[in-house]
Each structure stands twice: as structure tokens, then as C-alpha cells.
Write a protein that binds this DNA or RNA. Structure first.
Lengths: 212, 212
DNA sequence: TGTACATCAGTGAACGCGCGTTCACTGATGTAC
DNA sequence: TGTACATCAGTGAACGCGCGTTCACTGATGTAC
């Protein structure tokens, strides 16, 4: 008689009642996110590993997600909303529009560095890794991006920056993305004064679009 | 009798003479690079595929490379030297130090976008994808980086920029990396006026470090 | 000049793996009469 | 109130795949005597 080793896998959960399907969906998302953070590697978050973590068999994942990419992306999409909230909280209460821009940038970089695997999936993956259901326009119409554009707009209204709002916004985004993704990709590069470097990059970005 | 399908694989090459091992090494590198460009996906460049492309069996790859990561990285390292040459050629003959900085940035972005898979492997991969033999200090001591630092130094000597040279250099690098990697990762994002955007980002970066 | 031997580039076959996904099914839950 | 039936969340087993890597080997090339 083979006794299953209860210590390695979660005990099998009891079947959901009718209409409680969405509950399992949440459990799957949570488990996948836990594994993503734990392993620090998207590729190690396999359907089997997630199913195991939830205490369910692999096929049941497919009742809630079309395929693997959709699952992974759903995890990161959820995270993207928290991203927006985090940045907004960091900028809240800052009157000076330039300082607000800088604070947003600081929050962006911080959030990215604190959640490198989410960031990697969202912004550093190959195009082929995005699920079919994902539309790149989503970034442009997301509230996070809208908030950035608003912040830039306020600077323009105050007359402290020059240039077209959308162009400036994307330019700033590219800037914060640059330092964030580089620090994620090359953690062992001998970065001089990490914190100071980030701050300098942020101020350089802001100063680069100042009205002359 | 099964006749091997000569059309799908290269004909078997004749064995190398003594001391001609390095020749096969070159052939392997070329084949791997060809596959990388053709498939546009590092993961599709398998040891088997490379061996097949060369017309050799998989184990023979291991006579020249310790493992797969070393092969892929060797391809991209070779490319990194061409990168340096390309940037230097673009900046050659430009007297004005600020214009030179801009030209370098332009060349950087262009080269990255023209060879997105190499760029991805070199600068956008996860740290775990780099071979054990690879030292992140290599970037800092590469001639490409030295050339950037020199260019920044010339600007500082001319008194047109402010800030510590290394800090400014990395800051500029992060900037060009940002727009390059974003364009590679999100080709389907509705970028407004791609070329103009790149140019604006570059000038913003330069203006961000101008002496006040 | 001829022969035995050493070298070593490359082979053939296999190991062992984990993966995403599919498919026919089970059986507890809820419903209709 | 009791029973036959429908529903559907989740299962068990398997398919089929391509991969990186290892290992004992072969046989043409070059060398020593």
C-alpha cells in the first residue's frame, strides 16, 4: 500500500459548490503568484506546479484559463492595477507638478524592483509571450497611463515643461523603464550608488523636458 | 531502405583536419546566429537545431562550448563587438561633443532595433540565463562602454554638461536602453511617430544633463 | 620506405526529464415532478 | 416527501513532444621508429 506523502502537496480541497467556480479561479491566481515570487522565474510556474500548489489536478486549471500564458498574464494584470494604486499613493498630496512627476517616477522604479518577475512579464517579455487575448492598446488606455498623462498635463498647464503631452509621457516612461529593467536584468553589474543613481536618472528625465 | 531526405538537412561535412577544430567552432557560431535571426527566438535555437544547420551531430557542439548558454552568449558577445564598431562609425567625424553624444544614442537604438534578438539576450534576459563564465563587469570594461565614457568626458571637458562622468554615462545608457527595449518588447503598442519619438527621447536625455 | 601506434574530431544511441494539453469519466450537488 | 434525473466542478490517465546532455565508440589523420 502506498501512502501519499501529505507533506509535499497541499491536501486535496473539497469540491466547490455550484457557482463557486470563481473561488477556485482566485485560488489559482494566488497560487501562481506565490510560485512566481518564490521561484523568481516565470518558466518554473508550470501548470502542474500551480495545480499542485492549489491542491487540484492540472486539467482543472483549464476550466478557468484558456492556456498557460493567459494564467501568467492574468496574475500580472492584477498586479498592474496595484501598480497604479501604488504610484498614485506616492504622488498624492504633492502640489508642485514637477515634484509630483519625480515622485511618480520614484514609485514606478521602486515597485518594479520590488516585483521584478511581474515587471519582467509585463514589460520585458517577448511579444510572442503575450496571450492572444491581450491587446497592447491596453497599456495606453489603462488608468496608470492615464494618470501619467494627467501629471504631465498639469506640468504643461503650469508652463514648466515643453513638448507634446503624449510624446513627453512616453519619453518619461521609456526613461523609468530603462533604469528599472536594467537593474532587474543586471543585478550583478557594479552599479555605483544604486539609490543615488536612480534619483539622478529621474531628475535628468524631468530636466530633459523642462521649458527653456 | 530509407533514403535520408537531403533537402531538409545540410549534407554532412567532411571531418576537420587536426588543428582545424576552431573552424567548426566558427561554423557553429554562424549557424546559431542564423537560427537566432531566422526564428527570432532564443528558445528555438536548440543544440539539435544548430547541429542540424551545421550538418553535424549534437554532441560535437560540446567539443566547442561547455553548454547551451555559452553558445548563445558567444554569439551575442561577438555581436557586441560589432555594436561598438557601429556606434563608433556613427559618431566618427562629429566635432560637437553634444551632437556626438546624440549620434551615439541614435546608433545604439538603431543597432538594437535591427538586431532585437541579440539585444534581448545581451540586455533583457534574466540573470540566470547568463553562463557561469560571464562576468557582469565585462560590460563596464568593454570598449563600447569605454567609448561612451570618453564621449561624456569630452562634453564635461567642454563644460557643456554637469555631473560625475560615470553617473552621467550610466544614466544615458539607461535612457537609450529604455526606449530600445520598450520598442522591442511592445512592437504592437501604438507608438506615435516612432522615429520622431526616438529622436525626442535622445534629445531629452542630452538636455537632461546639460550644464545649467 | 613501410608499418604499428597514438591522437582526437566527430558519431550513434540513448537517458531522463518535465512540459502543455486532451479526453472520457465520476460523483456530489441541486432540481423537477 | 421521495425518487429519478440533469448538471458540471473536478479527476485520472495518457498523448506526444523536444529538449540538454552523456557515453562508449569509430575511423581518418598524422607520427615515431
Amino acid at each position: 500500500v502506498i501512502v501519499p506523502d501529505e507533506t509535499t502537496t497541499a491536501p486535496r480541497r473539497t469540491r466547490a459548490r455550484r457557482g463557486e467556480g470563481p473561488l477556485l479561479r482566485e485560488r489559482i491566481l494566488d497560487a501562481a503568484e506565490r510560485l512566481l515570487i518564490q521561484t523568481g522565474d516565470e518558466d518554473q510556474v508550470s501548470i502542474r506546479a500551480v495545480a499542485d500548489e492549489v491542491g487540484v489536478t492540472p486539467p482543472s486549471i483549464y476550466m478557468h484559463f484558456a492556456d498557460k500564458r493567459e494564467l501568467i498574464f492574468a496574475v500580472c494584470d492584477k498586479h498592474y492595477e496595484r501598480f497604479d494604486e501604488f504610484v498614485e499613493r506616492a504622488a498624492a498630496g504633492i502640489e508642485d507638478p514637477l515634484a509630483s512627476l519625480h515622485a511618480r517616477g520614484r514609485a514606478y522604479v521602486q515597485f518594479g524592483l520590488e516585483n521584478p518577475e511581474h515587471y519582467r512579464v509585463l514589460f520585458m517579455g517577448k511579444p510572442s509571450a503575450t496571450p492572444a487575448s491581450y491587446d497592447p492598446q491596453q497599456i495606453l488606455t489603462s488608468s496608470a497611463f492615464a494618470h501619467l498623462i494627467e501629471a504631465v498635463h498639469r506640468c504643461a498647464d503650469a508652463g514648466v515643461i515643453r513638448g507634446e503631452t503624449l510624446m513627453v509621457s512616453i519619453s518619461l516612461w521609456a526613461g523609468v523603464h530603462g533604469i528599472t529593467s536594467l537593474l532587474i536584468s543586471k543585478p550583478n553589474f557594479p552599479w555605483p550608488y544604486r539609490e543615488e543613481l536612480i534619483d539622478r536618472v529621474l531628475w535628468n528625465l524631468v530636466e530633459g523636458v523642462l521649458a527653456r
